[in-house]
Design a protein around this nucleic acid. Structure first.
Lengths: 352, 352
DNA sequence: TCGTCGTTGACACCGGTTACCATCGCGCCA
DNA sequence: TGGCGCGATGGTAACCGGTGTCAACGACGA
């Protein structure tokens, strides 16, 4: 706060330099400067260095608005999401921003309403108006193929994030939820659980399906059966987790473990157990998915699957801008990232 | 997903119309169209209607990039924050986006590092490069006066959000944390608590100070004293809440209630109590601040102060763009929004 | 007839990019 | 040795799609 008053005021506050200034001082034409900026290969090495020196001295930075107009393309990466979960959106933002740091790109956020009839047209207008460079599509809306087609149509790059592959590697960054959930459920089975409840995600979500499949894989491999009554459905919110858990916990015989398809719902399970005086993990083991902060902040801290959402988002954004920043090419960005089981205190062997 | 294949393809996919198209078809000049778009008052009513009709028929939308270049100002609202808390950032985004919905503005997000020496210069480059229309400054970084001065200097509008007034009403949207905390503490005192611990926020945060002052106000009014030992400090994270609570709970005599300056730390208090076998609220009452989701999702659900962060953000964004959208003028946006105490299950009378 | 007012248009400009052309050095062939 | 073709470079002008300035224009009251 306390800084020298006049450190950077007045005289130094010169108007920003333009490409013309650079050209004039370097003794070349605008076009040549433009070539330097855009790394044109047909350019004399000496000329390039001369111009770059002037650029450095002037602290010249090309005007993004002018570039956007001339190129008919903005240096903006959009994040389109249909907020499934606050923490997840924020993690994705963090990942994207990490990838964009130090580049000329900025991130604009665009929440949409999946249930709206107008959604596709809204997004179309958004993309066309802003002429976005590219967009990152978050689940669950990333599963909408019409959106992907739309991006192609308006000439906007896109990368979809998801729980399983649903596009080619250039347009997709995925985790492998099925295997991850299988591993988590295996952990429950290894502890001796036989009656394991599942709280799955909403109908139509790919992540919900993948996680259920992983759950079923594990049970099938262990030779356990899965009566329909042990499957409840939630929509990834705490409240629906509570409701689903209440149904499962009123069953007789009662499951000794529950896998919830995300942490919010798993927190709901713990909450519901608490209401009924069922102690976790002594009488009920619980596993969640995502490893959001809530998992570590409730009592007992939740065993959960750490979903690599930040890395996925970073990877997605790099795929979009990768070839613009002279770094890794798009293809070199991983398209599938691994999840890991983090064991905390919500799992124990079933009561004898 | 299933939509008529050819609903909007092919022929209709015409190149977007420009201001020239509108001008030509309406039989006027570009400039006149521009006047219509910008609601210039010196314009014949008939002409306006004629042009508007053509605009409607063509579905013409002005190109934001061209406008940005000509006006030397982008239609972007920046959100500058030094992430104090994930949920809060997301709530602010929601509020801003609500205010921006239906306007031509978009939101770009810019996290910064408060502790970095380069922070001010980084932000300067960001503002100058992108020529943002305006920015919303989140606490705690909103308390940095140098940032506000910087915005003035580069000609970028700004609105600061905070826990108390620290600028004129045009540049500030605040809550009144002091009174809110006083009310919350009064509630504890009414329940009969005398030994009340405080977990305050980090040094240098205005919100931390305001909340402490409110706490002290309440105790002073009730004639209770506040030994220094009953004050612990955290930095608004769950973990520091646990640590601070541990210190308080090991005191003898032990406080019968604790006010934590935010919900994360309050959740930490509950967690720490749990670890020590102290039951909440029977043996320890807890009140938090913010009313983030975690408050309702832990057991017992937390009594807390609902901080009107979404409304504050909405109000902030409206102040910025208000006079551009023909709606409420900036001055009409409220500059102080009320907090409310939401009573849940973490408060009870002290043990006899 | 003139000054004024309300309206409107011509034109340069914002700061880059691209299309197209001019120039230059150089090797090749006659 | 000179004319010529050619690739490599760099310049000029138009353009992206709007906005500002300022002058022109018709109608009107004085």
């Amino acid at each position: 706060m306390a800084r020298p008053k006049d450190a950077r005021s007045g005289g130094e506050r010169a108007a920003r330099s333009t490409i013309n200034d650079v050209a004039r001082i370097a003794g070349v034409s605008k076009k040549t400067v433009s070539r330097v900026i855009n790394r044109s290969p047909l350019l004399n090495e000496e000329t390039r260095e001369k111009v770059e020196k002037v650029i450095r001295e002037l602290g010249y930075v090309p005007n993004p608005q002018a570039r956007a107009l001339a190129l008919r393309r903005n240096f903006l990466i959009g994040l389109i999401h249909d907020n499934p979960n606050a923490q997840m959106v924020l993690n994705v933002q963090q990942g994207i921003l990490e990838a964009l740091a130090g580049t000329e790109f900025e991130m604009v956020v665009r929440p949409v309403d999946r249930s709206s009839q107008m959604m596709i047209e809204d997004v179309r207008h958004f993309l066309e108006r802003q002429r976005l460079f590219g967009v990152v599509l978050l689940p669950p809306i990333s599963e909408n193929d019409a959106l992907a087609r739309l991006c192609d149509e308006v000439g906007c790059r896109y990368v979809r994030m998801g729980s399983a592959e649903l596009d080619d590697a250039d347009h997709m960054v995925a985790s492998n939820d099925r295997d991850a959930v299988r591993e988590a459920t295996d952990h429950l089975i290894e502890q001796g659980h036989k009656l394991i409840g599942l709280i799955e995600g909403p109908d139509g979500f790919r992540s919900a399906r993948e996680r259920r499949l992983g759950f079923e894989d594990s049970l099938a491999a262990a030779g356990h059966k899965l009566p329909r009554s042990l499957i409840a459905r939630g929509n990834y919110t705490f409240e629906t987790g509570v409701t689903a858990a209440e149904r499962l916990l009123d069953l007789s015989p009662r499951p000794t473990a529950i896998f919830a398809s995300n942490d919010e719902m798993a927190a709901g399970v713990v909450f519901a157990a608490r209401e009924r005086g069922i102690s976790v993990p002594e009488e009920l083991s619980v596993i969640g998915f995502d490893d959001t902060p809530i998992a570590a902040h409730i009592w007992p801290p939740l065993t959960t699957v750490r979903w690599p959402i930040v890395s996925m988002a970073r990877s997605a954004a790099r795929k979009l801008v990768g070839d613009m920043v002279g770094g890794l090419a798009a293809g070199e960005q991983p398209s599938e990232l691994p999840s890991t089981l983090v064991k905390r205190a919500s799992v124990a062997p079933p009561p004898a």
